[in-house]
Design a protein around this nucleic acid. Structure first.
Length: 288
DNA sequence: AATACGTGGGA
DNA sequence: TTCCCAAGTAT
């Protein structure tokens, strides 16, 4: 296997974006919040929300003391609002199980609500400097191209962690940089569409470029259409609840003009089932 | 393992 | 305009 770590590190030193969570003093809580927000949401949309969030709740204990409704409201239009609920639950768990300190142990992190394989390792590595492989969608694409010669990665797998681990240097500080660099390269150069191979630090050893950048046909699953979907209906309902000045809305006033009343009611029920809404006395509200 | 889950910007 | 897709997780 070609050495990927050295060129990645050199490239990262010169080209990494100056992102808030990369400041040394940013703190584990800030890193954790940023990782929740970055799950499926672009960097440029996260940054302003992250700063507002941390100004309001500077520690896990601060957030744990708030109502879930406040977390969902503060989440605003970041999307996937259950992440706000899960982040709040994680804060409660950190307060109750870890004395208010974000843990660095992978298994302890994995046990927190809303934290999976990616986020657990991202926190341990980027907040605490521990040595683990961190694999996100960017890294999977970089490895698929540079090592396997494929245009897109296959389905996520535990093998991805082993592949990343195989290119990590022994030194933990450098290993953390390699993790960040692989993600950064995938985000800014080795992109899903129109990769910029002309400025890529791996171009002289990339298996995919060497064989002429073929489309290897590994289609990623197409996202279901959003227009007319249940998700869109849920989004409309939740927006109504977020924007309600008195924090509660009569059920009859919840998107009354939605084209499909049955779909709207289904959305309301599913939001209640998810803990994102509560109904009582004919009123609908965010969870207290 | 496949599916559900928001939102909005860029090409 | 329409389509793609963005630092994933839970079930």
């Amino acid at each position: 296997m070609p050495d990927l770590a050295a060129p990645l590190v050199e490239w990262y030193r010169a080209n990494a974006r100056d992102l808030p969570w990369r400041q040394p003093e940013f703190g584990a809580w800030g890193v954790l919040v940023s990782e929740f927000m970055l799950q499926q949401t672009p960097v440029y949309r996260v940054i302003p929300h992250l700063e507002a969030w941390l100004a309001r709740w500077p520690t896990p204990t601060d957030l744990a003391a708030a109502a879930p409704a406040d977390a969902v409201r503060q989440w605003a239009n970041l999307g996937y609002p259950r992440r706000a609920l899960w982040l709040h639950r994680a804060a409660v768990e950190i307060r109750d199980r870890h004395d208010g300190v974000v843990p660095s142990d992978i298994d302890a992190l994995l046990a927190l609500t809303g934290i999976g394989d990616y986020t657990a390792r991202a926190v341990a590595v980027f907040a605490y400097g521990d040595r683990h492989p961190v694999v996100d969608t960017n890294t999977r694409r970089v490895l698929a191209r540079a090592i396997e010669g494929r245009s897109q990665p296959g389905p996520p797998s535990r093998r991805d962690l082993a592949a990343m681990n195989a290119i990590l240097p022994e030194d933990r500080t450098t290993a953390a940089v390699v993790n960040a660099a692989a993600m950064e390269l995938g985000a800014t150069v080795c992109t899903a569409r129109i990769p910029r191979c002309d400025v890529c630090p791996l171009s002289d050893r990339c298996a995919w470029l060497a064989v002429g950048r073929p489309d290897t046909g590994d289609e990623r699953r197409k996202q279901a259409p959003y227009e007319g979907s249940d998700r869109q209906a849920r989004g409309a309902v939740l927006r109504t609840l977020r924007d309600a000045a008195n924090h509660a809305v009569p059920l009859a006033d919840v998107v009354p003009d939605w084209p499909d009343a049955l779909q709207r009611d289904r959305a309301i029920d599913s939001l209640i089932a998810d803990g994102l809404a509560e109904a009582d006395d004919g009123m609908l509200r965010l969870p207290a």
